[in-house]
Structures are given as structure tokens and as C-alpha cells.
Design a protein around this nucleic acid. Structure first.
Length: 195
DNA sequence: AAAATGATCCTT
DNA sequence: AGGATCATTTTC
């Protein structure tokens, strides 16, 4: 069952937790790939020094974050990789959730081909890696996840006691915000990017 | 096991 | 100018 707009247009920390265990589905010309979300990070708008939209900064890039929830926010990092975020909360609240790792579920051969490795653990255990495996590029920036090429499917919620909560990765530049416990992952899952 | 390095280009 | 990364190589 495809997740609808109402799922995304809620409190970002709630969405970041509930995204764990859900399926990310990619339909592309060369085939279908599916991954289960096992690691997320919340980036919460104007008051989060780690967020692109800190202090409400509006540029061509951040504009989609100010729109309605349920859209893709994709940007390039270090000239070579992409990071995939899901815009959350309602229009005017520039908040999002970064997907950091997936557990490969379907289309493994296609993922291996795109990634150039056959080590299943390493296919999607990092934000840049999962974008390569799922063929997510900046062309997907702004895509509505309520449509058919890139979307999420419901799945049983992960029990509260199986959700681990830590500070976010690589945001040491963000001062006090660097210690906010806004990273979530599934306890014991083998596909999490790092413990 | 951890740390250093280089690839490489969009955004400001 | 510099960065929400990755793979490979180098060092303890």
C-alpha cells in the first residue's frame, strides 16, 4: 500500500521514526528495485544549524523543502554522490528526513550492476550508495512521492524498543545542533551504515 | 582497526 | 571556496 500525503505532512521526528521498516520503491526503465528503510536522520528547518534550510534560507535548491510534504529532495555532495531526502511536514515548514541506509529487498541484480559490487551488505549502507543502487539523481529533485516512479510502501511498524536513537553523522559544523539525537536506525540490522 | 587520500562538481 | 561521501591505500 503506497504511503499518501497525510503520512508525510506530520511532525518530522515522528515521520523519521515511522519511516523505519517502510519500503522504498523505484520503477525505472531497466527494472524495479525495492529497499527497506533501516536508517534515517531528521533535519528540522529554520532552527537546525545542520539543515540546508537553517534560518529559513531559500535558494533554488531549498525551494522544494518549503512546499508540501511527500516530495523528493535530492542534492549532490562532494561532486560525485547524491543524498536522498523526503520533504516532511506541511507547506511553509522546510523540514526533511535523510535516508542513510536500506536493506535490499528486490532487484538485487540490478543494484549490484549499478553499484559495481556483489557484496549485498554494501549495496545500500550509506546515503551515496543507496542513491547509486536505486538510480536516484538530481533529476529526481522535486519528484512527488505520491506518484509512480519513486514512492514508499507501508509495512509493519518497527517496535519502539527496536529503534536506536543517536546524534547525526558528519554534522560537527553545526554547533549545539550536532548533538541532537535525530538519527534513527533499526537495532541490530546488518545494513545500517555505521554503529 | 583506524586514519589518510583522492575523486570531482554543484551551490553559494 | 567548500562540502550531510565512498573506495582504496597506508599506517599503527
Amino acid at each position: 500500500m503506497k504511503l499518501k500525503r497525510e503520512f508525510y505532512e506530520r511532525d518530522t521526528l515522528v515521520v523519521a521514526r515511522e519511516l523505519l521498516g517502510k519500503y522504498l520503491v523505484r520503477e525505472s526503465a531497466d527494472g524495479k528495485t525495492i529497499g527497506k528503510i533501516v536508517e534515517t536522520e531528521a533535519y528540522i528547518g529554520p532552527h537546525d544549524a545542520a539543515a540546508h534550510t537553517y534560518k529559513g534560507r531559500r535558494t533554488d535548491r531549498t525551494e522544494v523543502a518549503f512546499g508540501r510534504g511527500g516530495h523528493a529532495y535530492v542534492y549532490m555532495i562532494y561532486g560525485m554522490y547524491h543524498c536522498f531526502n523526503i520533504v516532511t511536514n506541511t507547506a511553509g515548514k522546510p523540514e526533511m528526513v535523510l535516508l542513510r541506509a536500506l536493506e535490499p529487498i528486490e532487484g538485487l541484480e540490478l543494484m549490484k550492476k549499478r553499484r559495481g559490487t556483489s557484496d549485498i551488505r554494501k549495496l545500500c549502507n550509506g546515503p551515496g550508495k543507496l542513491c547509486l543502487a536505486m538510480d536516484i539523481t538530481r533529476l529526481d529533485h522535486g519528484t512527488d512521492l505520491c506518484e509512480d516512479r519513486l514512492y514508499l510502501c507501508d509495512n509493519a511498524p518497527v517496535p519502539e524498543e527496536d529503534i536506536v536513537c543517536t546524534p547525526r553523522i558528519n554534522v560537527d559544523y553545526a554547533g549545539e545542533a550536532a548533538s541532537y539525537p535525530w538519527r534513527f536506525y533499526i537495532r541490530g540490522n546488518r545494513f545500517v551504515s555505521r554503529k
